[in-house]
Amino acid sequence: MLAVRNLSISFRMYSAGLRQHEITPITGLDLEVRAGELVGIVGASGSGKSLLAHAILGILPANARTAGEIYFKETLLTPDRQKRLRGKEIALIPQSVGFLDPLMRVGQQVRRAAYLSGANGSAEAAQRQVFRRYGLRDEDAERYPFQVSGGMARRVLVSTAAVGQAALIIADEPTPGLHPAVVAETLGHLRQLADEGRAVLLITHDIGAALTVADRIAVFYAGTTVEVAPAADFQAGGQALRHPYTQALWRALPQNQFVPIAGSQPPPDQLPAGCLFAPRCPHVSAACRAARPELRLIRGGWVRCIHVEG
């Protein structure tokens, strides 16, 4: 459904006065999402998770430049095609109701999404149906975004994406700081959308949440994919995981050892020449510092590390 190949994104910035320099927050990013699959993307803030979503939707700022390829339904995603597909075949579930039009009733916004995405039958019928599906009452449609809170807001946001025929749904941090019950409910809705045959991309910093519903987890670090692993490998514990960063992430969870590794993710203008994780890696060698490792298929998962053996 969606394939990202060797994507990089650069921004032109002004350093002082008229001098410009280029920073590249995303380099060599690869990802694949199949129909009926829910892929979780996890990583620190600044690892390029949201930028990837913006690149797929074609809403990067004006000073951005991309290289590499994004394929949607096996056809190259060009800016023209992005404009055509956005909101129809590719839908976004945003972080909060702050992304909705504050002056439009939520029912109307869902109907508008239905109309734009070419839902079957009338937009109003589609909205009523999707509201019933997510346990929202008909009178909830008459509320304005500021009048919905917590769990109801989540349901409305999921409705805007589920009402149409979108084949790819991108959820960008859909559960920030919510109560565990609401998080579980929202994630359950995403799982259902995948089970209907859609491709779902769940972008989150919360591994624990992603693990409960995802088929596969892609781990981003400093703008690159370091590992793509079946969710089962995380449940099995640290040793089934391939990349040292993924293992460190696993160990740092409060339900595991809660032990961090030192240092921080390198900023996009100070990327190391070799492996991006080399400065913090316990297994680092001269070969790691010399060149960026390629993605390799090891034990049914992809990993960007030269030390892992099958």
């Binding site: 008229l18 430049r65 290289a67 390829e69 096996e74 190259l76 995603l77 800016p79």
Partner: peptide, 26 residues
């Protein structure tokens, strides 16, 4: 995903970056 007959990579902005700040200062 077929790897045959894939078109050339996308370059969103084919033109080099325009120096908007220079235009503004002008």
């Amino acid at each position: 995903m077929s790897d045959m007959s894939l078109p050339a990579p996308v370059h969103r902005l084919a033109t080099p970056f325009s120096n908007r700040r220079r235009q503004t200062l002008w």
